[in-house]
Design a protein around this nucleic acid. Sequence first.
DNA 1: AGGGTATAGTTGTAGATGCAACCATGAGAG
DNA 2: CTCTCATGGTTGCATCTACAACTATACCCT
Lengths: 160, 160
Amino acid sequence: MTDTRWLDDDEQRAWLRTAAVLELMPGALDAQLSRDQDLTHFEYFALASLSEAPERTLRITELATMTNATLPRLSRVLTGLEKTALVERSACAEDRRAKNVTLTEAGWAKVVAAAPGHVENVRQLVFDRLSDEQVEQLSAITEALLGELDPQGRMFASSR
Amino acid sequence: MTDTRWLDDDEQRAWLRTAAVLELMPGALDAQLSRDQDLTHFEYFALASLSEAPERTLRITELATMTNATLPRLSRVLTGLEKTALVERSACAEDRRAKNVTLTEAGWAKVVAAAPGHVENVRQLVFDRLSDEQVEQLSAITEALLGELDPQGRMFASSR
DNA sequence: AGGGTATAGTTGTAGATGCAACCATGAGAG
DNA sequence: CTCTCATGGTTGCATCTACAACTATACCCT
């Protein structure tokens, strides 16, 4: 048990602000999407992930990994999205334990409808306030953090 | 309704990474605290906020503002913390609608016990991976974001 | 004073989420 | 072959959270 290496003033300030952003941002993202499109940010992210997959289809487990969801959570969210006909579950030929989820036409239309408002929101919340230089810095910083948070790159299967 | 200003490649990359950090960090913070101290990050943050207040006491509403919690949520969390004798509620003399929450001795001891592990965790997750320059950049970036997310500085009553 | 409105806090209730238990299928060892 | 163990997915249950309704008190205006 060694002595604690406390945060110095700069680190302290950076952390307090980061923690505040961490606390506030999810609500800001959810607010716009649920107000305008009756979607949570998680649902949007899941639909968007499907929309970029080949055949707009993924294994449930694969989607869970990409969205950092537990399987039970995703299972119930999919049940909800199935009720509004945005996705469909189907059996998986290669592995009969598994299932595929596919984005329906209505689901695709939903993503297309939701994307502009979401992007506009992200712009207002983030990019309108940052210089080009800061965007680069943010990119490098978050990449470094993901080295610890997500060493396998689970949330970046497609984008790497 | 004007055309959407889509994100360019740099912005896209920065946002994907930022969204991933936003998704993963809360779990990483909660995991350490609940494993080692049987506290959620929210509970820790509330206790820590009380520990820095004058008399280790705050109005419930004030604490709710500082922690970005709704009043019902905070009310129930306080009930839990009261059960383990980490805080105490008491009537407020100046306004008989209001109540004060005070950190007990046991609550103070809990914060003292929890802080080193939490700081160590934040170090591993964040500062060990960033250069001094990047810490400064992160500070400036998050400050800019809070300008939109928290224009009143609600989460920074004490630290500004 | 008296009435209307706003604020502080708690509680009812419904929806979301995690953990653990469960069922079905697959993969490997003998 | 079949026994054992691992994996994919769903469901039960406990907990957490938000929204709305409610009580009590304060403030304001006449």
